[in-house]
Design a binder for these strands. Structure first.
Lengths: 334, 334
DNA sequence: CTTGATTCTGAAACCGCTTGCAAGAATTCA
DNA sequence: TGAATTCTTGCAAGCGGTTTCAGAATCAAG
């Protein structure tokens, strides 16, 4: 709205050098005589110079921007990942720019295109359902890193947790407490995480030589209401169970509410385990036993990997793990 | 990573016109003969042209980007606002770019500078604690819109809810049920919303001619743990109360947990009202009576206003209101 | 004191798009 | 029919950096 910003030319004049030299000290691309270098630095400080990112982007072809494609499927898990990305990027030269894949039909592609249109130097995709073809297409336009999703032959470029293990641990915890009739409220049918968590559930039961009763496995959609309905349904059909493993906390909340309405006590009558460990879970009544996912850290790791990819540096992908957080919603069956 | 992108020049050649003309049809700045216009449009379609935003930004001085400064003080309220902004912007030519004011000391300023460095065309500030001086300084650099915060003489450029009314309604609801000893768990001390909600609480009591017992007003910090502590504290000091109004849902959860641990029944022994109506509240046990805020809508409205400000158009600022959502955590005192 | 190698540095050519300006074409008014 | 307008359009000058290239300056070696 007011006075015009200062440019590299102003700096050049004041430091008595050419634009080229200024550019060189800014980017450290070519050695510059110490004396001049300091003059430039001084001038930049005095004039409080900020390079124009458009000019820079136009000339260099780089935006110093990382696109983040999020997808809320109803859990705060993805939000936390996004937060982690933000946190890591805050201390870098790069800024994130978000796009949400949730709204439109071909949301994923559209979002990706938007981001590419913004010339992002890299794309972090958080738990999308883009097909592998789409991914392959994107892949040779820009560096990509996937979070919360596992894709074959992308080992170095995706970060995810062992959801089978998580589901297994959750179920095992219940089995160890003595439960035999364990209901499972699954997540969205074709969602990778949901499928794996259920697989973990099955594996734990099999290992414990407990017959799997398909009646105990309910469909859910990761939201509270579906948790309520799943349990109502079980109760209505008079199917007996002493424990519930819900594929996420939100559904666990719903399940608990449904029990509460019938006066069924947790954990005395029925134990509940969730998945996510969202902030509210620790304050639930009773505090919810759940599987914790290091979402924030995942985001940070992903951002870090992306920065490395862009700079063509090497990077580590730590093996992050889920963890059982035992609280008061689980106990031995009566 | 591969072949070079097509430019306005390519289009110009193919359509047999000059770059200028192409630019004009893209931006609709000057009438262009229908015939040529169509040729250009056709060429653009055929070549799948996407203007380079850097070149455009450099030449025009506009970025088609709106900066969003968020600040999480621990409630999902701000996240919802951000979502609302995203939603509205999705159907516009503008993209949001986020910065978080949470981390560093002078976080607010730093975040704002980052955004300005990115040449945002507008800045939406979500519930920050920037001083009015800071705001004034920013104000003449870029259009600003504030969400979730009230500032004098910024009437047209800030959107907030009547938190006094919200606090009043919450308290009134309890009074109407017959409660007299109503505890209040306040939010962060110098937080605008916290102050207003407490003011509403006081006003409701005064209006009902109920003496205000300062012992019933506890400090809190908007997180679950502080809710737990507030109530523990009250109980420990043997201060009697039959209802609680917590300045947000998260603290209400904490309060409820604290009661649960002592076997105090909700709502039979103590009623609870929260503030926010976050997604989990409806599935709490018992479902939490709370004050709903149209956060998503606020975000959308803010984004809309910002777009209008940028285009120098007129805009409406609907009067959004809080609303009492009565669920099962409140009832008449025993 | 040359000569060839090594550093530094500035000039100038872009990067892709917007926009002021002026000229050509088309239309209108006397 | 000629002059005055009104439309359209292309040219070319930026916008503020980056980067290539060649020349200047410095240095070690011959």
């Amino acid at each position: 709205m007011n006075k015009k910003p200062i440019t590299i030319t102003d700096i050049a004049k004041r430091a008595n050098v050419s634009k080229s030299t200024v550019s060189r000290v800014i980017n450290n691309t070519t050695p510059v005589h110490e004396e001049k270098r300091e003059a430039v630095l001084k001038a930049m400080k005095e004039l409080n110079f900020e390079p124009n990112i458009f000019a820079r982007g136009l000339a260099s072809g780089q935006s110093r921007t990382i696109g983040v494609m999020t997808q809320n499927i109803g859990t705060p898990f993805y939000d936390s990942i996004a937060q982690g990305i933000l946190t890591r990027l805050t201390t870098s030269e790069y800024s994130p720019i978000f796009a949400d894949g949730r709204w439109k039909a071909e949301a994923g592609i559209v979002a990706a295109e938007t981001l590419l249109g913004r010339m992002v130097d890299g794309l972090i995709i958080v738990g999308s359902r883009l097909t592998e073809q789409d991914l392959a297409a994107l892949e040779n336009r820009v560096p990509i890193f996937l979070v919360g999703r596992e894709v074959d032959r992308w080992e170095r470029r995706c970060l995810f947790l062992d959801n089978v293990q998580g589901g297994y641990d959750a179920t095992k915890h219940l089995i160890d407490l003595g439960h035999r009739r364990i209901a499972h409220i699954a997540g969205i049918k074709d969602h990778q995480d949901a499928i794996r968590r259920e697989a973990g559930y099955r594996r734990a039961l099999e290992e414990a030589k407990i017959d799997i009763d398909e009646d105990l496995i309910c469909e859910g959609s990761f939201d509270g209401q579906s948790g309520v309905e799943a349990i109502e349904n079980l109760l209505k059909r008079d199917i007996k169970f002493t424990a519930i493993f819900a594929a996420n906390d939100m559904m666990a909340f719903g399940a608990r509410l449904s029990l509460y309405r019938r006066g069924i006590k947790v954990p005395q009558d029925v134990s509940i385990v969730g998945f996510d460990d969202q902030a509210e879970s620790a304050f639930f009544t009773p505090p919810l036993t759940t599987i914790q996912q290091p979402a924030h850290e995942m985001g940070a790791v992903a951002a870090n990997a992306m920065l490395s990819m862009i700079l063509d540096e090497d990077y580590e992908l730590p093996k992050l793990k889920t963890q059982v957080v035992v609280r008061d919603s689980t106990g031995p069956p009566r």
